[in-house]
């Protein structure tokens, strides 16, 4: 009997030791000098919006470190716009965050009670392919500068559907690349789907667009040629789909790619470490134009 006890004990110890192949560790990282971080997307017709924060050491508690009282100007051929500081009360019921306690808790934990940003109510002018210059001066005397353009939108030529024998549709989005320079695109394809309610079900009463595809490409393989993005056979007759084509600046394209790679690299042992690209002189982040073409389509029976 005592042998059985020993054997059971050894087996239990072994099984216990086999579990839990993950454990928390302290990572010894080099000293970090926090950097100013800017995000500003110039969308013609909408107000200027800009966030100005400071990065944090990796293992500090998350708390967005807003930079207040900075002087932010954006100049272009139409003049210079100065952005004012705004403080958004995240408990403001008009934002709709109060309805969801979890979101509100998350926001207040990360952002504090208010969210600070810079904006100008004057809309961003439609000055395609012209320079916009950003300058930021902080109270501490730090100066950030950046330059970008708002590229012209590249139109979607057509949406073409194909139906298979099960009457499921495949959609091709045709457009024509401009051949005079290297172009960068972001392709977003969405389909309307029922909104999932708080119980986790789809009551089929309200609908929203959900992203099916979202990726960026350059025009290396179709330079100056008509090209089409496809989908899978997955849309039923009557489905509403929306296809969007962003025309990105090279800086935005590289920021987008390296930002995604940086996130991936910290999650996976097979990711390639990436220093996030920036066009902000003196800091991190991105200053870029944001334009797109968009077509909406309802799947038709043949």
């Amino acid at each position: 009997m005592k042998y059985l006890v020993y054997i059971s004990l050894i087996a239990s110890l072994f099984l216990a030791s086999c579990g839990n192949l993950q454990q928390d560790i302290e990572i010894d990282i080099p000293e970090y000098d926090p950097q100013l971080v800017v995000e500003c997307y110039l969308q013609p017709g909408l107000p200027y919006f800009l966030t100005l924060t400071r990065s944090q050491p990796y293992f500090d508690d998350i708390r967005v470190d807003y930079i207040e009282d900075a002087i932010v100007t954006i100049s272009h051929s139409g003049g210079t716009d100065t952005l004012d500081e705004f403080n958004l009360d995240i408990t403001d019921p008009t934002l709709g965050l109060l309805a969801d306690t979890a979101i509100l808790n998350t926001f207040s934990s990360i952002f504090g009670d208010q969210l600070t940003f810079y904006a100008s109510l004057r809309p961003v002018p439609e000055l395609f392919n012209e320079d916009f210059n950003l300058e930021i001066k902080t109270l501490d005397g730090e100066v950030l500068t950046a330059k970008t353009q708002i590229l012209n939108p590249v139109p979607i030529d057509s949406l073409v559907q194909e139906l298979d024998e099960d009457s499921l549709a495949f959609i091709l989005t045709y457009f024509t690349d401009e051949g005079d320079r290297t172009n960068y695109y972001r392709r977003v394809f969405e389909a309307q789907r029922p909104v999932i309610d708080s119980t986790g079900t789809e009551p089929d009463t309200t609908f929203e667009f959900r992203i099916i595809q979202d990726f960026v490409v350059d025009d290396d393989i179709f330079d100056g040629q008509p090209f089409a993005f496809g989908t899978d056979f997955e849309f039923a007759i009557g489905d509403t789909i929306r296809s969007t084509l962003y025309h990105m600046t090279q800086d935005h394209f590289e920021f987008y790619n390296t930002q995604a790679a940086a996130v991936q690299a910290s999650l996976s042992p097979f990711g390639q470490p990436a220093v996030v690209h920036t066009n902000i002189s003196g800091g991190r982040g991105i200053f870029t134009g944001l334009v797109f073409s968009q077509e909406t389509y309802v799947i038709q029976p043949e």
């Binding site: 990572i27 919006f49 990065s55 944090q56 990796y58 958004l88 904006a119 979202d214 910290s266 797109f292």
Partner: peptide, 27 residues
């Protein structure tokens, strides 16, 4: 191995336009 010593918030293109009711772009 390569370890990021710091991090910064990434708001994304539609964060402020949506929060302030100015509309949003897909994706």
């Amino acid at each position: 191995y390569t370890q990021a010593p710091g991090f910064f918030p990434y708001f994304g293109e539609g964060f402020l336009t949506t929060l302030t009711g100015q509309g949003n772009a897909p994706g």
